[in-house]
Amino acid sequence: MQGIIENLVAELTRLPGIGRKTAQRLAFFILSMPDAEALSLARAIGAVKEKARFCGRCFNITEQEVCEICSDDTRDRDRICVVEEPSTIQVMERVKGLHCLYHVLLGALSPIDGITPERLKIGELVNRVRNNGVTEVIIATNPNTKGEITAQYIKEVLSPFPVKVTRIAYGLPMGSDIEFADEVTLGKALEGRREL
């Protein structure tokens, strides 16, 4: 018995942000769950690993060959929003008015970690722009150094094509006070100011 619980604790500690104490708490919670709920959790994990795969066009996570977004004919197919991870698509989808296609890079360039363009899905993005008559590429990589460098690299590789490359704006988060902003964020917000 001790061995089975110990094994579950060890497996749970593999998850990000889960230490041994939390893993023990989760293991005993799973033990106290009704059989049906615990088995449903186990089946859900199994199903994700069995069926989830990357979309053949945009590299979002899907169960089919092509994801729901790429197969949706009502979407604006002239615009592609580029994101680092599939999880960002869910956040972008909450934005009203953006009803375009996506492209997931599966990471961001990082010279110091040896993450080169070949390790990301940048070549596939170039192919989509070349073959599908895309008119705008919106780069929504994270507003940090890796995201910015990735955005600049994409701009460079897309420069031979007749496509507008845009970058999401930098600035202050809604609901915050200017006095707490650092000079770089504030500088970027001023750079991107617009006429009212």
């Binding site: 110091i112 150094t145 910015e148 600049q152 460079e156 650092d182 000079e183 770089v184």
Partner: peptide
């Protein structure tokens, strides 16, 4: 607390690549 951000180095791809070698 930022003394100097060196953000102009980060905003140029080629310059940041040179700086990355220095950091590595």
């Amino acid at each position: 607390d930022i003394i100097h951000p060196f953000d102009t180095i980060r905003s140029g791809l080629q310059c940041f690549l040179k700086a990355s070698e220095v950091l590595e």
